[in-house]
Design a protein around this nucleic acid. Structure first.
Length: 737
RNA sequence: GCGCGGUUAGCUCAGUGGUAGAGCGUUCGCUUGACAUGCGAAAGGCCAGAAGUUCGAUCCUUCUACCGCGCACCA
C-alpha cells in the first residue's frame, strides 16, 4: 500500500490541528529546545494594543517575525519570541468610553474607580483576542512568557524606572505650554499630535497705540497684527516685531491698548518673528502658543490663561466671553471688533490645524503643570547607539528621520490626565500648600514625594497622609521598557522564569511599523541604555506599510481596511502569509493585491499535489533515510542525470534563499523557492520521473528539502506534508535542521 | 519650504549598461495515469518626459511632471 493524501488540501481542517501539535511540543519555549542549541536568538513582539483586532499591518509584521524566528529555530538557535499586549492608555480609554456612550453613560458619571473597573473588564474580555488571532496566522511565539504592560510586576518596573529617573534629576515638574486635547482632557506629547490642512481665515486686527506714546507715528495710530485665532487675543501679553524690521523700528518699546480687554501691552522686538508673515507684527499669547511662550519667557511677560482644560473660555477671558467655546468666542470677538472697526481686512488662509491623534479633536495649546523627562542626555544615548552601530536600522533610510527627531528633541511630557494607565509614583498631601514655580528644573520636593510605596510620614502642615496623584504616565513610557521589563527587570524574575533577563537581553530583532520609529523604537533604545547599559536590540526592521490598491491608507472607519482573518478563512493562513511576503519586495509600501493570496492558495495546492504524487509512489511502511543532497549529486551510479540536475538546482536555490534571508529580502527568497519548486521540480523533474522507476530518494529528498526551505513562509501545509513522509528519525519540521 | 520613496504588461510588482520578467487577468488548445487551484501555447510594454555621460541607457547623472510619505511652518 502506498501513502495516500487526500485529493485536495484543506487548510481549515489542517491549521488548527497542526498549531495544536506545535503548542503541545513545547518548542515555542526556548527552554524546551535541544540541549545543544546554539546561542539565543530573540525577537520582542511589538505588543498590539488591547483595543483592537488584527489588521493587515499586524499580519505582515508578525509574519515577518515568524519567518525569522522559524528560520533561526531550524538553524538550531535557542529562539525566543516574546509576545504580549499593551494597555494603550488613551486609545483603550476612548474605546471603553465609546461603549459607555452607547449606553448613555460617561466616564465622569461613573467616576474614576468604577470606570477603571469597566476598562479592566473590557481588557479581560477583549485583551487577548488579538493574540488568539495571531495564533491563526501561525505565530510561533512563546505564549508561556506572554506579558501585558500593566501586569503587576510590569507596573512595579514602570514605577522603579520613574523613581530612578527622578533620583537622577531627569524627571521634573514644570509649567509649560503643552498640547492639550479638550476632548480626551489630557496633555499629549508632540508625537501624539497630527496636522490637518484646513481652509481658514487670517484676520488683520488693529491694535491702537496707547495715549502716552512718546514717538511720532508715521502713518496711522494703529499697529496691525495678523492672526488665525482672534479669540486668543484676549490673552495677549505683547505685540512682537522683528528687531530688523524697519517698518516698526520706531514703535518698539511703545505700548498698545489691547482692544476689548483694555490692557496696555508693550510692543517688543524678538528675532523669532517672521517679517514676511502677515504685517510682520504678531500678537503674543504666552499661555496658548509654544512660540509665544518662549518669546514671553525671554521678555519676562505675564500669562493670561483664557482657554481652560474643557476647551472653553475662562474667567480671564472676561465677562462677555467666559464659558463660550473657543469657536463661539471667535465669532463673538470678531463681531465685536467689527463693530469697533478694528478689523482691517480678512484673508483666506490655508493652514495646518493640530489635532489629537487619538480622537481627532483640535488641540488647544495651553499652559499646564506637567511632569517632564529631560531628553538631552537620553537622546544622545539613542543617537550614539545607532551611530556606533549597536543598533542597525533597516532600511537605512529611516536613520534620517530618527536622527532629525533626536537632534531637535524637546523634553518629553510624560504625565497624562486620563484614568487608564500607570499612575505616577508620586504622592501629595491634602493641603497641597507648596507653591509651584513656573521655572522648570526646580525640584518640587516641598509638595510631592516620589516613591513607589506610599510615604509613611504625614504632612507637617495639614497632618494628613500623602495620597497618590491621579495623573498617569504616557503609555509609551511603559512601552519603552518592554525589552527588559518583560524579562524580569528590575526584580530578576518574570512569570516565574528566573535568569531570562541575563539570557535573553538584548534582543536581536524588533520589527516595527514606521510610524512608531520615534514614538516607540527610539525610546526603547535610550531606555535600554539607561537601565541596562546596552541597546535593547541589535536590528530594527522597519517594515512596509500596507495600503489599499488605490494607494490610500487602510482605515477601519473609512471602510478601506481588509480583515486578515477573512483572508485566512477564505484562502488559509499559509496562502495569506504567502500573499503578504510575495508582495514584500524591498521595503516599498504595498498596494494590497489579493491576487497574491490567490497565488498562495494555488501554490499550496501545487505543493500538496506534488507531494501526493511523490508519496503515492512510496510504500506506507517505508523508512527512508535521505543522505545530504550534496553527497547525492556525487553518487555517480545511483543517481541519473535528471536527478543530478534537480539536486544541483535545489542546492543552488538553497544558497540563493539563504542569501536573501540574510538580507531580510523575504519576497525574493519566497519567489526563489516558488520558481524552483513549481517550474523546476514539478514541471521538469516530476514529469521526467514518470519515465523512471527507481528514483525515490531524489524525489523524496528534494521534496523534503523544499518543505524545509518553505516552512518559515508556509508553516502549516509544510508541517502537515512532512508529518506524512516516510522518513527515519523524523520529528517536527518546525525544529528540523 | 526641506527631505525620502515611487513612476516598467490591463492590475499589483520584480529586474538588468547590450534580445524586457513574475503573479493575477485575457485569448486559443488540452478530462496526458499529482494537481482544471492544472498542462501547453499566445496576445499584450517608445520601461513618466527632457537633456547629458556612453559604441550602446529602462538601468548612471541632471532637470521637469505626477503620486505617496516624513519633517518644518502652521503667530
Amino acid at each position: 500500500m502506498a501513502i495516500e493524501l487526500e485529493k485536495a488540501y484543506d487548510s481549515k481542517k489542517t491549521e488548527d490541528k497542526i498549531y495544536k501539535l506545535w503548542e503541545e511540543s513545547g518548542f515555542f519555549d526556548p527552554d524546551n529546545l535541544a540541549q545543544d542549541a546554539k546561542e539565543p536568538f530573540v525577537i520582542m513582539m511589538a505588543p498590539p494594543n488591547v483595543t483592537g483586532s488584527l489588521h493587515m499591518g499586524h499580519a505582515l509584521e508578525n509574519t515577518i517575525s515568524d519567518i525569522l524566528i522559524r528560520w533561526k529555530r531550524m538553524k538550531g538557535f535557542r529562539t525566543l519570541w516574546l509576545p504580549g499586549t499593551d494597555h494603550a492608555g488613551i486609545a483603550t480609554q476612548n474605546v471603553v468610553e465609546k461603549e459607555l456612550r452607547k449606553q448613555g453613560q460617561s466616564r465622569h458619571q461613573l467616576g474614576r474607580e468604577k470606570f477603571l473597573e469597566k476598562v479592566w473588564e473590557w481588557k479581560e474580555i477583549y485583551g487577548n483576542i488579538i493574540l488568539e488571532q495571531l495564533k491563526k496566522l501561525g505565530v510561533s511565539a512563546d505564549w508561556s512568557r506572554t506579558r501585558f504592560t500593566m501586569d503587576d510586576d510590569y507596573r512595579r518596573a514602570v514605577e522603579a524606572a520613574f523613581v530612578h529617573y527622578y533620583g537622577k534629576g531627569r524627571i521634573y515638574r514644570g509649567e509649560r505650554v503643552i498640547n492639550w486635547c479638550p476632548r480626551c482632557r489630557t496633555s499629549l506629547s508632540d508625537l501624539e499630535v497630527e496636522y490637518k490642512e484646513e481652509a481658514g481665515k487670517l484676520w488683520y486686527i488693529k491694535y491702537s497705540l496707547a495715549e502716552d506714546s512718546r514717538f511720532q507715528i508715521p502713518d496711522s495710530k494703529f499697529i496691525v497684527v495678523a492672526t488665525t485665532r482672534p479669540e486668543s487675543m484676549l490673552g495677549d501679553a505683547a505685540v512682537a516685531v522683528n528687531p530688523k524690521d524697519k517698518r516698526y523700528k520706531n514703535l518698539i518699546g511703545q505700548k498698545v491698548n489691547l482692544p476689548l480687554v483694555n490692557r496696555e501691552i508693550p510692543i517688543i522686538a524678538d528675532s523669532a518673528v517672521d517679517m514676511k508673515f502677515g504685517t510682520g507684527a504678531i500678537k503674543v499669547t504666552p499661555a496658548h502658543d509654544l512660540l509665544d511662550a518662549e518669546i514671553a519667557f525671554r521678555h519676562n511677560l505675564p500669562n493670561y490663561q483664557v482657554v481652560g482644560e474643557d476647551g472653553k473660555m475662562t474667567e480671564k477671558a472676561g465677562e462677555i466671553c467666559r464659558g463660550l467655546t473657543t469657536k463661539e468666542c471667535r465669532g463673538k470677538v470678531v463681531s465685536l471688533l467689527e463693530e469697533l472697526e478694528l478689523i482691517e481686512r480678512i484673508e483666506d488662509y490655508v493652514h495646518n490645524v493640530s489635532v489629537c491623534s487619538r480622537c481627532g479633536n483640535v488641540i488647544e495649546p495651553l499652559l499646564s503643570k506637567q511632569w517632564f523627562l529631560k531628553m538631552d542626555e537620553l537622546a544622545q544615548y539613542a543617537i550614539d547607539a545607532v551611530k556606533n552601530k549597536k543598533v542597525k536600522i533597516i532600511p537605512k533610510n529611516f536613520e534620517k528621520p530618527y536622527f532629525d527627531w533626536l537632534n531637535n528633541i524637546k523634553d518629553w511630557c510624560i504625565s497624562r490626565q486620563i484614568w487608564w494607565g500607570h499612575q505616577l509614583p508620586v504622592w501629595q498631601c491634602k493641603c497641597q500648600t507648596g507653591r509651584i514655580s513656573n521655572l522648570a528644573h526646580q525640584k518640587p520636593e516641598d509638595i510631592f514625594v516620589v516613591s513607589s510605596v506610599k510615604p509613611k510620614q504625614q504632612c507637617s502642615k495639614c497632618k494628613s497622609h500623602y495620597e497618590r496623584v491621579f495623573d498617569v504616565l504616557d503609555t509609551w513610557f511603559s512601552s519603552a521598557l518592554w525589552p527588559f521589563a518583560t524579562l524580569g527587570w528590575p526584580f530578576g524574575v518574570a512569570q516565574g522564569k528566573p535568569g531570562d533577563l541575563e539570557r535573553f537581553y538584548p534582543a536581536n530583532i524588533i520589527t516595527s511599523a514606521r510610524d512608531i520609529l520615534n514614538l516607540w523604537d527610539a525610546r526603547m533604545i535610550f531606555s535600554g541604555m539607561e537601565f541596562m547599559g546596552k541597546s535593547p536590540f541589535s536590528h530594527l526592521i522597519i517594515h512596509a506599510t500596507i495600503l489599499t490598491k488605490e494607494g490610500k491608507r487602510m482605515s477601519k472607519s473609512l471602510g478601506t481596511g481588509i480583515d486578515p482573518l477573512d483572508l485566512i478563512e477564505r484562502y488559509g493562513a499559509d496562502a495569506l502569509r504567502f500573499g503578504l511576503i510575495w508582495q514584500m519586495m524591498g521595503h516599498q509600501d504595498i498596494r494590497w493585491d489579493e491576487t497574491a493570496v490567490v497565488a498562495g492558495k494555488k501554490f499550496a495546492n501545487k505543493l500538496w499535489n506534488a507531494s501526493r504524487f511523490v508519496l503515492g509512489r512510496i510504500p506506507e511502511d517505508a523508512k527512508l533515510k535521505i543522505p545530504p543532497l550534496a553527497s547525492m549529486t556525487l553518487a555517480k551510479r545511483e543517481t541519473d542525470e535528471a536527478g543530478k540536475k534537480i539536486l544541483r538546482e535545489a542546492l543552488k536555490t538553497r544558497k540563493q534563499v539563504e542569501k536573501h534571508m540574510e538580507k531580510y529580502q523575504f519576497g525574493h527568497a519566497l519567489r526563489e523557492i516558488y520558481d524552483f519548486f513549481w517550474h523546476k521540480y514539478c514541471d521538469v523533474y516530476l514529469e521526467e520521473s514518470k519515465k523512471l522507476d527507481d528514483n525515490h530518494i531524489v524525489l523524496v529528498g528534494v521534496l523534503a528539502e523544499s518543505l524545509k526551505m518553505l516552512h518559515p513562509f508556509m508553516p502549516f501545509i509544510t508541517e502537515e506534508i512532512y508529518q506524512k513522509m516516510p522518513l527515519q528519525e523524523k520529528t517536527l519540521l518546525m525544529i528540523e535542521r
